[in-house]
Amino acid sequence: MTPVRFLKPVVDKKRALKLAPRLTSLKGITLGTLWDNKPHADDFLRLVSEKLAERHGVERVIARKKTYIGSLAPVPILDELASTCDAVIVGVGD
């Protein structure tokens, strides 16, 4: 047997960012939603927001949208959501 030494094709990445602390309750919070601009995802987020308000006492919802699913959200929108919301729902929807 001849040993084979070869290079890994991937970079060893360590998670650079820490996850935000998890919420223990949604009562009275400000919820952000970020629509990816795919059809009907706005309806879905609106429905989820309403249900979370009804069932879990979400106080206020700030709904924002991206220009396109494959693009990063504009920095001012990210800053606004980060500074005003206790939690934000993002996702991909059709």
């Binding site: 047997m1 001849t2 040993p3 084979v4 030494r5 070869f6 290079l7 890994k8 094709p9 991937v10 970079v11 060893d12």
Partner: peptide, 23 residues
Amino acid sequence: LGLGAVESPDWYAAQEEFWKNNW
């Protein structure tokens, strides 16, 4: 070179590394 190296006992074992790691 910056990527890490792997040492396998032989060619066949090397192939198994690729499959195992989804490379």
